[in-house]
């Protein structure tokens, strides 16, 4: 049996990815997490005199706090297995990536373990976030300078 034949056989024997089920689970869990975020935003607006714009940061921080509790109790891992991108894409998933790596690094100490490993998973998100922000700003500036666009 050559590798190509084998890969065909392997594919036949491997259960297919349940695309629809995964998409539905991601949609509902992701939707619910965002709805909770919306509720928290309103709480900040109603009780703490935030505007809907300024409540954004407080909401994100609160969501990451919730992610910390769930991660520490080992629940976010289970949620992730169920929801896939539904729990990975919201900012709680970003929090989970940072927090799980931080908890795990504890046994190697706070500097070499927690500090050095915290962004093991989430570092790429920060890199691409900041780098793409830089290039988008640069391109827009160029386009504005040559008169194609306005601010």
């Amino acid at each position: 049996m050559d590798p190509q034949e084998y890969q065909q056989l392997e594919q036949q024997m491997t259960p297919p990815t349940p695309y629809l089920k995964n998409v539905l689970k991601a949609f509902f869990v992701g939707g619910i997490i965002c709805t909770i975020g919306q509720a928290i935003t309103y709480l900040y607006v109603i009780f703490f005199n935030f505007t809907e714009q300024t409540a954004g940061n407080a909401t994100v921080a609160t969501m990451v706090f919730i992610a910390m509790i769930l991660t520490g109790l080992g629940l976010y891992r289970k949620l992730g297995q169920f929801a896939g991108a539904g729990s990975a894409v919201p900012v709680t998933g970003f929090g989970n990536a940072v927090i799980s790596a931080a908890i795990e690094g504890r046994t190697e100490g706070f500097v070499l373990g927690v500090g050095s490993n915290m962004f093991k998973l989430a570092g790429s998100v920060i890199l691409f976030g900041v780098a793409s922000a830089f290039f988008v700003a640069l391109i827009k500036l160029i386009l504005v300078s040559v008169g194609v666009l306005e601010w």
Partner: peptide, 15 residues
């Protein structure tokens, strides 16, 4: 980004 700051602070506390 409040997301990064929050993740760092709560990551540290979680550890």
């Amino acid at each position: 980004s409040s997301g990064i700051s929050a993740a760092i602070v709560f990551g540290f506390i979680a550890a």
